[in-house]
């Protein structure tokens, strides 16, 4: 009996999961468009084909070549794009998009599939005032030492539905970093306390939540976003306490503040793309937003406003 029990116990413990590859369901590939534009860029469109799961090829290399691509503004032809290889089509005229102008992207593939999409870039945001002051030289936390700075700025919202993102990047002079990061001169700051009402962490929250953003140290928020519903067409003040990593060997330091205004197409696309990528086992899946008729992907505009702020020691 003892022997039998031992064998049973052993067999039970050996029971474990196995994985068996099974054929995926049928799927019809579609043409995927990726085109983001802003007033500082030229027209660029990337085209590729989606593929069925189980297609044992690199999906990022399923380029769609020999397509005819035009940019229209109303009935006026703005630009025609030429194929540059690897699925990329670019402007030959080096014309740049204008803000607040509705553009239509028209594509005809070599298989005579027609696709179209519409979007515009928002107007540039005016930062009317700003300041940055050292609050406290060093603060100890379980994850290291930081200098605390108080950043304040004021910008003017324009009419319409606007979605803003503030990104703060810390300039770190390169002093013998590894080979791979030798050109890494700006570090994105994720740990800061934002006190502006209406600001949220990520597009999802900004789009849905009425509550104020309740910040806190260690949030790890890498996408501070606000919709303008709380300050529609008014000046908006925003401030934050920045935790700048302390580095004894650092010389003069500065931060880059990037205030980006997005079209709603971009916001929906970026939100769903993030969630499609990051969805874990306990998250509902999500389809990536598309404003392309006849295919998948996005054609969306955005506008950047940059500000470089030196840090006092």
């Amino acid at each position: 009996m003892r022997c039998l029990l031992s064998i049973l116990l052993l067999i039970s413990l050996l029971g474990c999961e196995t994985m068996i590859e099974i054929p995926p369901p049928a799927y019809n590939p579609e043409v995927v468009v990726t085109s983001h534009f802003n007033p500082d860029s030229i027209w660029t469109v990337a085209l590729h084909q989606s593929s069925s799961i189980g297609t044992k090829q690199d999906v990022s290399k399923q380029y769609e070549s020999d397509a005819s691509i035009t940019i229209m503004s109303g009935t006026e032809l703005v630009d025609s794009l030429l194929y540059y290889g690897k699925g990329i089509y670019k402007s030959t005229t080096f014309k740049r998009p204008m803000t607040e102008t509705s553009y239509t992207l028209k594509i005809t593939t070599k298989n005579q599939i027609t696709l179209s999409a519409q979007s515009s870039a928002p107007s540039r945001t005016l930062i009317s005032d700003y300041s940055i002051q050292l609050q406290d030289e060093l603060v100890n936390t379980p994850v290291g030492q930081f200098g605390l700075y108080h950043l304040w700025l004021e910008f003017e919202d324009v009419s319409g539905i606007n979605m803003y993102e503030i990104g703060i990047y810390h300039y770190v002079p390169w002093q013998g970093a590894s080979e791979l990061s030798s050109d890494s001169i700006y570090q994105r700051l994720d740990n800061f306390v934002s006190v502006g009402p209406g600001w949220h962490c990520g597009f999802q929250s900004a789009l849905e939540v009425e509550a104020e953003f309740r910040g806190g140290p260690g949030l790890g928020c890498n996408q501070l976003v606000a919709s303008d519903r709380t300050f529609e067409e008014r000046r908006h003040e925003w401030s934050a306490t920045l935790q700048i990593p302390f580095n004894k060997s650092s010389g003069n330091q500065e931060i880059l503040l990037l205030l980006t205004s997005y079209s709603t197409d971009y916001v929906e696309y970026a939100r769903t793309l993030t969630e499609n990528r990051d969805a874990g086992a306990f998250f509902e899946p999500i389809s990536v937003y598309s404003n392309v008729e006849g295919g998948l992907g996005v054609f969306a505009g955005y506008t950047n406003t940059n500000l470089i702020l030196p840090l006092s020691n």
């Binding site: 084909q49 989606s50 999906v59 050109d183 880059l256 793309l273 950047n304």
Partner: peptide, 20 residues
């Protein structure tokens, strides 16, 4: 609810962290 196909997309916001 499972994915049937695969493709790729791009974020085209500035990411200066690893670029000059």
């Amino acid at each position: 609810w499972l994915p049937l196909g695969q493709s790729y997309g791009r974020f085209h916001r500035p990411i200066p962290q690893y670029s000059n």
